[in-house]
Design a binder for these strands. Structure first.
Lengths: 238, 238
DNA sequence: TGTTAACTGCTAACGCTGTTAACCTTGCAT
DNA sequence: ATGCAAGGTTAACAGCGTTAGCAGTTAACA
């Protein structure tokens, strides 16, 4: 049997649950995404949702996966708007897209990148959400590696890397990435990623409000500095 | 009346509430800090806590203030262990202390620097918590300004700063800091702070786990880069 | 000193949460 | 046609924040 009537209904209900959860998240924040609220909005009762998800947490993890996917798609869309030759432009576009999306979806951001909730350890995340997160990560990594292959920005030789770090980088490269690269490239990637996501996190959570109403110029300064390390041509936004 | 018997009892109860809340936070995480749990641990009932705090949220905000104070004290303690002449050492010590405390108090960190909770907007925070947070911020700012006055690291002249940023920096300098400084110093401070806290946040929340078991070397690399911008002498930890 | 008001606790209750158990109807497959 | 599984229901349990109402204790004041 390929596509029974029940299968179709089930898939539709699944979709409706996701959409409803998503809408509540956007409208009322993460703590309002309760089973009862979702069910209420759908004209159902809460226990019925257990036919679709094992627990509240798993429903949230599924939601996380959806959001990661949406973010990743938006990133790819923005990257594609830059002509293929312009790698600097693509890198800038991706970074700015990530920041823009994050600031425009603070509650989703909190769910994806905030403090890990209880029983939500970012480690034992559901396969689905985990895979979505990985694809998100690969988006930036792919850009970075393309940059390395085509432009060869300067990186420290393996021998000059802190021994403790070197071993970790080697493991990550060989086990997770399975590519042939100097370890310095991975180190550089991680440093850039920390600056990018670290800065965005602070902004999203309002931890620069004590001094700035609009931290965009600070973000752009960061982009300039990162770009210098990678030999990129900087061009202002818009 | 200066110090009635009731006043003493009330103060003691206040203290006990704080300590109990704190212990539950450390042992079981932020979501376990419920009014009922606190009351249970104290041999009281939940409604009695309303004699001391208007709501659950306000109790949490008070807890935040306590934690900020504790963190600030630990920072000052560590800074003092470095001889007064060694400003580079003090700066490194403070930064490493912040990172160490954050990694050793992840749940407290989440409360202080995580996503703002509902009705917990980081803006309309209770006066108490707000003041504690300010004193924490001033700890780093003071080090930074001392560094500037004694060592004069290079900063961009006011005219070269992005106009939009310049105006914000001027407001922050004149209204919040009320000091006489080139705006470039403030800009540099904010950039350093973003790198420091941004990196620590990612580490605490486990967002580097996808690649690294121990991100300390990456943190030290950041310290080296920041130090270069400020003309500091780098010395490895321990 | 006696009275009054404020303070500090209690219990009971409301409505919310996630979750489980028991039950009923409906769709699908043998 | 029979039987089983899927997908829904209601009822219930334990926990939560919060409010109302009641009692006892302490402090202040006439």
């Amino acid at each position: 049997m390929v596509e029974s009537r029940r299968d179709r209904l089930r898939a539709a209900t699944m979709r409706e649950i996701s959409e409803t959860a998503r809408r509540i998240l956007v409208d009322q924040g993460p703590e309002a995404v309760t089973l009862r609220a979702i069910a209420r909005d759908m004209g159902m009762t809460a226990p019925a949702l257990y036919r679709y998800f094992d627990s509240h947490g798993e429903l949230l993890r599924h939601l996380v996966g959806d959001i990661f996917t949406e973010l990743t798609e938006e990133l790819h869309r923005d990257i594609k708007t830059v002509p293929d030759g312009d790698l600097s432009g693509k890198f800038l576009a991706a970074s700015r897209c990530f920041r823009r999306w994050s600031l425009g979806h603070r509650r989703e951001y909190a769910l994806l990148f905030g403090a890990p909730l209880p029983g939500f350890g970012h480690k034992e995340q559901a396969d689905f959400a985990e895979e979505c997160a990985r694809r998100f990560g690969r988006t930036f990594l792919a850009l970075f590696l393309e940059l390395w292959h085509k432009r060869r920005f300067p990186v420290p030789p393996d021998e000059e890397i802190d021994p403790g770090l070197r071993e970790q980088l080697r493991r990550y490269r060989d086990e997770a990435l399975a590519v042939d690269l100097p370890l310095g490239v991975i180190q550089q990637f991680l440093q850039c990623w920390v600056r990018l996501q670290g800065g965005v996190s602070l902004e999203v959570f309002g931890h620069l409000d004590f001094a700035l109403d609009d931290p965009e110029p600070i973000f752009e300064l960061t982009m300039i500095e990162i770009g210098q390390g990678l030999g990129l041509e900087y061009s202002p936004p818009r």
